[in-house]
Amino acid sequence: MNDKTRFMLKKLLLYSFLFTVVVWIVLPIIVSILYAFSSKLDYYDPQKVIPTHYTTQWVKTLLFTLGAWDGIKNSVIVAILTIIISFSLGIPAGYAIAKFIFPGKDTIKLSIIALRMFPIPVMAIPLVVLYIKLNLIDTLLGVALAHTAMALPFVVLITSSIFAGVSKELEEAAMVFGVTRLGAFFRITLPLALPGLAAAAMFTFVMSWNEVFVASILTLKNRTLPAQILSIMAGSSGGAAPPYYKFAAAFIMTLPAMIFIFFARKYLVSMWGITLK
């Protein structure tokens, strides 16, 4: 075997491996979308691997009869509240870590890194008691506050690395020309950091959008989408919903996340790289 055929063979191997992996990842998503719109007859027809008759009935029923639409609204509100709270707390902290040198900085940073892995169920279960006392139980604000605790360490780490990427000299130049530190932050650093912050916001959005445990525990009527879906669909044997509603639910839950990843794909690897180091 000469070098050329060996090279071609290697290339073939590489591409077939990648093709397999990509199919393995993408196929279930496509199938679940197709099945979400499949007619009942096609679904129960054992001959039809790929359905040919489509209907929006399941998605519609799920959205408007089974309450998924309210779930979506609630999820969006919770996610936006989470972004607002976690960013207003996280940006100053991230900025402090990125731009100042002070005693105890490493300890604080390491603690935040460690807190990122704090198990959410541990937080949620005892929180119920407090929320009942504070009348926060079954409110969207309550869920958002808990989601903020989950997202905040990530926000601090991501923003600090974004701010660290904005040269200190740019800010100092503005300060030399008579702008205060706060002014320099708003006029120089923040605009430069904006694209990164936007990606971080989307990241936070997806984190909150996908979270189910806290939301299920802290709410009863005002459920977020995953909590709503979980309560309708849970369990294989006990699951009350017919299968095609499950497919519709998968579709509704996956779509926003995929749109997100399309817009933020450029930042994704580096952002996970930052948060997971």
Partner: peptide
């Protein structure tokens, strides 16, 4: 394609694989 699953929640993932594996599934 490889990073798509990063944004899919475990609930959605469960539902997607239910579609794949259930008795009349794909």
């Amino acid at each position: 394609a490889l990073i798509i699953p990063l944004t899919i929640s475990d609930v959605a993932g469960g539902l997607i694989w239910y579609t794949m594996l259930t008795d009349a599934g794909f």
